[in-house]
Design a protein around this nucleic acid. Sequence first.
DNA 1: AGTGTAGTTTATAATGGTTCTAAACAACTG
DNA 2: CAGTTGTTTAGAACCATTATAAACTACACT
Lengths: 132, 132
Amino acid sequence: MKYIDKLRNSGLRPTKQRLQICEVLFNTEKTFHFTINELERKIKDKIDSKISLATIYNTVHAFEKKGYLKQIPVNSNQTYFDTNTTDHHHFYNLKDGKLIDLENSDVGPINIKRKIDGKKIKSIEVLVKLED
Amino acid sequence: MKYIDKLRNSGLRPTKQRLQICEVLFNTEKTFHFTINELERKIKDKIDSKISLATIYNTVHAFEKKGYLKQIPVNSNQTYFDTNTTDHHHFYNLKDGKLIDLENSDVGPINIKRKIDGKKIKSIEVLVKLED
DNA sequence: AGTGTAGTTTATAATGGTTCTAAACAACTG
DNA sequence: CAGTTGTTTAGAACCATTATAAACTACACT
Ligand SMILES: [Mn+2]
Ligand SMILES: [Mn+2]
Ligand SMILES: [Zn+2]
Ligand SMILES: [Zn+2]
């Protein structure tokens, strides 16, 4: 019910699997960061039926393309996604590989003084690595 | 001769392979960014003998650990390294996957106002994604 | 120089996250 | 419904990276 229109309006058919993944990703108090591996576990916990790994990948990429998820650049063998699609920055805890949101107000405006001919800025992302 | 002391002082034996890789990485006018794949080609071009891929990985990681290289966080299936180990930021050209250095003066000082208990900041990195 | 030891290189295999394939299936349209 | 297109799925393929373990080499100490 809740996500059917959202999907239809995006040109994505509201399948059982996508709706279940929407529940896990978006029906939460707070936004969160995840790897595909973590999402797979979360889905297994919340859902009785099984969703294939290929579908999880497909869906995450479809949602990313529609702007419902974004990828966070970190040095890891796994891809990190974020359900918070607003412009914001991150702490990256090297110890456990967890991301923590930094609000824009925690960082201050970033003004890139240099320009590259024929290119425009798509995003500006700050990653603050944390160690003990 | 040039890199033998550097390696010895770091506790790394100055082997033929490491010295050759040093030539490719550090005997240059400008610093540069590379993936292992690109470095492998560069080595093949510059060197007559062959260095195994495993050694290239080993050496890059050894140099990274000693602080002679650093990894740049980007969304890519390959790991990006930088021979410029000073604190600086990057443009990332999404079209061709190339990095461009941003001097600190191009970005301005970044002041992280938030703190995480028991953690200290290891690095602050800004990635500016470019599109057409 | 010769010997012993620890460090290094190498070919090759293994790993593991991600993407591809193509057949079964399900949502939509008329 | 029937036809069409989009989606799901298990499994295979892909490919960057890491592990393995045997051959080799730099180095320290005679
Ligand atoms: Mn993607
Ligand atoms: Mn590394
Ligand atoms: Zn976030
Ligand atoms: Zn750089």
